[in-house]
Design a protein around this nucleic acid. Structure first.
Lengths: 237, 237
DNA sequence: ACCTGAACACCGTTCAAGT
DNA sequence: ACCTGAACACCGTTCAAGT
């Protein structure tokens, strides 16, 4: 096993023709592997190139820039979010299952979730996800106008939760941050922050999944009871 | 006006004692100025140091690292979010006014909003904001358990909207992205994406403020009608 | 057309040395 | 204690030159 520090000297396998050709596909696969092992901050042009035994400049034949690379990574990840089975339950359960799956994927890669908020994805897997969700909202009786905007709300919520709480275990700094906040809440000055002092640990209570699930119900119940104002500019009539 | 390329040669003003002393305060002020003019990506240790006529290493006396610097910037910005006046209206209006002010601040600095999702702020200005919001929810009759979790929901929503839609004008790439998505929706394959094709432009309708305001109502109505399950582990009972 | 090395213009952070 | 220059270990992207 000659896998120490430096990259292997150009021949890694003897079975293969010395070097598999560079493709967009292979670049993204390599990026996903690095993401899984080291996090997004290590997914750099130079690092990917090194893993592929070439220079960073070579990647620019297949990839426009870093933003393009990131968009590809996101849609690849969304490909693993499968639509729910009708056997799972009624429309509400199915919708919640799908959004929870979406959450789970982004939860593993919170940096990707943060990126998703900035990029407005439009890949095929994202469109499929949207379409399935819209169908379920329709089944649930959410009117079209409310469903169109509500879908955004639901996805935004799931994405934001992933961005906020996603695997904070890897960074030990996160634990400090959390305990710093907990400490500040526990010892909250009842004069300056009376409500925080009153509610205390209730603010931090509950597990992630319970909170997420409750949040989805809040959104769905809100959607079912909050019509959009008729004074807003409509599309046709 | 000798302000061309290189930094000034150590004496910028003759009135001042040649160099105002370095302080944490001055570092953050400088960071905010750069943020306002050039965006977060230019707020680097080296750039701040250059503006203060010193080397990047000098900043580490007053600032732990980049994360610390960012946290300071955020709380400084939140200092400008003033609690709403009772004259503004009832609890719902006041809460919406405050969250809209919070949105406006982060909307101007979407990169800060994205950062906020990752860092769990705990500065004094953030705590003040939380406390005011909790007081308003209490006035509105939202039970404590629901308010504790619902507050998170409301802030998460505002932060995520800012992160998603905040000043996309500065990057011309954003306009392309949006029109790319619009194009994809307009020409959506009715076979593969029937719901998207059916709803069409309704998905993209409405202005930012209208959507945000409606979203707040969805959340508030949901909060008022969605009790937390009693089977969840409680604090004391 | 695809690939490469070298260069350009940057980063954060550390550290021995100065004051 | 505060400040500094220089160094270390990185970045993304471009571009002339090779194949």
């Amino acid at each position: 096993m000659p896998s120490s520090g430096k990259p292997l000297p150009a021949h890694r396998r003897t079975e293969r023709p010395a070097r598999t050709p560079l493709t967009r596909q292979r670049i993204i696969e390599t990026a996903l592997a690095i993401l899984k092992e080291q996090g997004l901050s290590k997914v750099t042009m130079r690092r990917i190139a090194a893993d592929l035994d070439t220079g960073a400049a070579s990647l620019y034949v297949y990839v426009q820039d870093t933003a393009d690379l990131h968009a590809q990574i996101l849609d690849a990840l969304l490909g693993t979010v499968t639509p729910p089975d009708p056997a799972d339950g009624d429309w509400r359960v199915r919708l919640k299952v799908m959004l929870t799956r979406y959450l789970d994927v982004l939860f593993s890669y919170p940096e990707i979730a943060r990126m998703t908020l900035a990029t407005h994805p439009s890949g095929p897997n994202y469109l499929r996800l949207i379409d399935s969700a819209l169908a379920l909202l329709r089944t649930g009786g959410v009117p079209d106008r409310e469903a169109a905007w509500g879908l955004d709300l639901l996805l935004l919520y799931a994405t934001a939760v992933a961005a906020e709480q996603g695997t904070r275990q890897d960074t030990p700094a996160a634990a400090e941050e959390d305990s710093a906040l907990a400490c500040e809440i526990a010892s909250a000055d009842a004069g300056r922050y009376p409500q925080i002092a009153r509610l205390g640990m209730e603010l931090l209570s509950g597990t992630g999944p319970d909170r997420f699930d409750w949040g989805l119900d809040v959104l769905l119940n809100g959607l079912l009871t909050t019509p959009r104002s008729v004074t807003e500019a409509g599309a046709a009539s």
